[in-house]
Design a protein around this nucleic acid. Sequence first.
DNA 1: GTTCAATATGTCGAATCTGATATAAAGTCA
DNA 2: TGACTTTATATCAGATTCGACATATTGAAC
Lengths: 102, 102
Amino acid sequence: MKPDKKKRLEAKGWAVGSADEFLNLSKAEFDFIEMKLALSKALSEQRRHSRMTQAELAKRLKTSQSRVAKMEKGDPSVTVDLLIRSLLTLDVPKKQLAEIIS
Amino acid sequence: MKPDKKKRLEAKGWAVGSADEFLNLSKAEFDFIEMKLALSKALSEQRRHSRMTQAELAKRLKTSQSRVAKMEKGDPSVTVDLLIRSLLTLDVPKKQLAEIIS
DNA sequence: GTTCAATATGTCGAATCTGATATAAAGTCA
DNA sequence: TGACTTTATATCAGATTCGACATATTGAAC
């Protein structure tokens, strides 16, 4: 299994292959993925709250629908930088970002 | 002036060239840079608190002294991803990260 | 001032991330 | 069911970021 896929699954709570493999994620790595998924979820919720399609959001963020989909899915190719910049662009206050990542 | 340099200066509170130019940073961009610098500062403080040199921290983070220097300086080539992962590796709790970015 | 340790800066090839495109899959409604 | 909209996935070329290295600058002790 590719490491990316593994991490994605593990991040969603699935111990892949063995408990050992799951535990191979350091606390730092685990927390980081957890933060990323929280930001993904927040972006998705924010979009729905504004009743936009991914295509509309993409336009607002000056990117593509496919990247928005990946952002909302927590795809490994998406950085925390991109997620945070996107949320800030949607006028989510820093305070709220702080809550999201805690 | 190169945009990177400009942004670095502006982020540190310097209106470069003109007030207009300064205001050209959107609130989202400004907040993002502000967050990044806050994380940089936190990393630097965390290292000093642990009485490490940049070279020692670099070893701990499996990177180089020069990158640590850039992280602490808020160099444009450093992502929020890297800063957050570094702080998490130093066992800074997510709660504290949240405070840092607010 | 000189020496030595620490930090900063410039550069580069490799790795990663980006927006974009194409297309598949899933959802909605008649 | 089929037509249509929305979301998900795969891929890629160009851009960005990475660790590493070399070297410059700063700082501290003598």
